[in-house]
Simulated scan of single mutants.
Amino acid sequence: MDISAPVTRPPDLYGRPRIDSFMQKLAAFSDNAVTRLARRSTPPRRPPTPEEPVIRELVVAAKHQEAEDVVSLRLAAPDGASDGSSDGGMLPPWQPGAHIELHLPSGRKRQYSLCGDPADRHRYRIAVRRIANGGGGSAEVHDALGEGMRVAVTGPRNAFPFAAEASVLLIAGGIGITPILPMAREAVRRGLDWRLVHTGRSRGSMPFAAELAELAAAAPGRVSIRPDDESGAPEAADLLSVSPAAGAVYCCGPAPMIDGVRRAFGDSRASALHFERFAPAPITDGRPFELQLGDTGRVLPVPHDRSALDVLHEALPDVPFSCRQGFCGTCRVRVAHGHVDHRDRRLTTTERAAGAMLPCVSRAPEGERLVLEV
């Protein structure tokens, strides 16, 4: 077809070379009628609203001692808790690296990595280490939650997704094995080139030893267990030395271990680093500022090396919190006046503009005073 040729109108119903006026009016009437009908039948469009987290009630189907000061909980839907066979007990799916938020009877909320089998749609498994000087959440799980008790849960969510690169090194420190164990099983299932290193104070303190032994037996040479009291605390460069060439590294554990791996990563042969902390990162670039508690006039100084949440929690012990890393949103407060240096990974631009702040990570410029609605 010659696209440069002039376009001519076809003759109308009567063979005339011009548009028939009657048909033109009829088409216009039809178009207007359809438009009016569409306007009546189509509901007005509303701006999207943030998805509210779904809270579901689960039952503690089993509780086991996994290591010194570590217990695991298997959580199931109440109508499927007895044998896990009820279709009504199906739980939302999850992928390695995901976590749930546990709503404890006291009102505390704590986040724990899922460490079971993603193929098991009837039960979630989490593991909790007792923290002697913590905020009380771990002690409550150990001492107050028993088999048969019901507990509210939100999630799963995933802030530490496993991308399943062709070659991976999985590094876990202590209880940091919880998100790493499902990743190792996924690596086996996908036939990846993988290695796993689990470190800890002693064998007795390292959870899931039996499961890791089974994994090691099925994949000789790929699993390394390194208790500090047997081989000494490992250097980060030593841990990274077993990474496959151009492999991705997934690391979870205590903050010093993660910081060491991050510093040594540049000299390793690995190609990417993914990590998740179980404790907030140290504040390295903070500046002192102040919090004012509403109209009370009470002013709380926030030093350069402490978070606003730490200071706020000392003054108001009932202030809720969970992840302490700026992604769960539990500690949200509203700022009535003052400029916030937002450092979270949760709030939208609209929420920030409305005054929302996550004091676990966000701060203010030096000398600034934030007036909170409390």
Score class of each variant (00 low, 15 high):
Thr8Met: 14
Arg9Met: 15
Arg9Asp: 06
Pro11Asn: 10
Asp12Pro: 09
Pro17Tyr: 05
Ile19Glu: 15
Asp20Arg: 10
Phe22Gln: 15
Met23Tyr: 12
Phe29Gln: 15
Asp31Lys: 08
Asp31Met: 11
Val34Asp: 07
Arg36Pro: 00
Arg36Phe: 09
Ser41Phe: 11
Pro43Gly: 02
Pro47Arg: 15
Pro47Lys: 14
Pro48Gly: 06
Val54Ile: 13
Glu57Pro: 00
Leu58Arg: 08
Ala62Glu: 14
Gln65Pro: 01
Gln65Trp: 00
Leu75Gly: 06
Ala81Asp: 06
Ala81Ser: 04
Ser82Asp: 15
Ser85Arg: 15
Ser85Glu: 12
Leu102Ala: 10
Leu102Ser: 06
Leu104Arg: 10
Leu104Pro: 04
Pro105Asp: 13
Pro105Glu: 12
Ser106Ile: 06
Arg108Asp: 08
Arg110Ile: 12
Gln111Gly: 06
Cys115Gln: 01
Gly116Thr: 05
Ala119Met: 07
Asp120Lys: 10
His122Gly: 15
Arg125Ser: 11
Ala127Lys: 00
Gly134Trp: 04
Ala139His: 08
Glu140Gly: 07
His142Trp: 02
Val151Lys: 09
Val153Asn: 13
Pro156Met: 11
Ala159Gly: 09
Glu165Ile: 08
Leu181Pro: 00
Pro182Arg: 07
Met183Asp: 02
Ala187Glu: 01
Arg190Thr: 00
Trp194Phe: 11
Val197His: 05
Thr199Lys: 09
Arg201Asp: 02
Ser202Leu: 02
Ser205Thr: 09
Ser205Ile: 02
Phe208Asp: 04
Leu212Pro: 03
Leu212Ile: 09
Ala217Leu: 11
Ala217Trp: 03
Ser224Lys: 14
Arg226Leu: 15
Asp228Val: 06
Glu230Ala: 14
Ala236Ser: 13
Ala237His: 12
Leu239Ser: 04
Leu239Pro: 07
Leu240Ser: 07
Ser241Pro: 07
Ala245Glu: 15
Ala246His: 12
Gly247Trp: 04
Ala248Glu: 04
Pro254His: 09
Val261Lys: 05
Val261Asn: 03
Val261Trp: 01
Arg262Thr: 10
Ala264Gln: 08
Asp267Gln: 14
Asp267Val: 07
Ala270Asp: 07
Leu273Pro: 04
Glu276Lys: 02
Glu276Leu: 03
Arg277Glu: 01
Ala281Arg: 14
Leu291Cys: 00
Val311Ile: 15
Leu312Trp: 00
Glu314Gln: 11
Glu314Pro: 01
Pro320Ala: 08
Arg324Ser: 13
Cys328Phe: 00
Arg332Tyr: 04
Ala336Pro: 00
His337Ala: 15
Asp341Ser: 13
His342Pro: 05
His342Tyr: 12
Asp344Glu: 09
Arg345His: 13
Leu347Asp: 01
Leu347Lys: 05
Glu351Ile: 00
Arg352Lys: 15
Gly355Ile: 03
Ala356Asn: 12
Met357Ala: 01
Leu358Arg: 02
Leu358Ser: 05
Pro359Arg: 03
Cys360Leu: 06
Glu368Val: 01
Leu370Met: 09
Val374Ala: 12
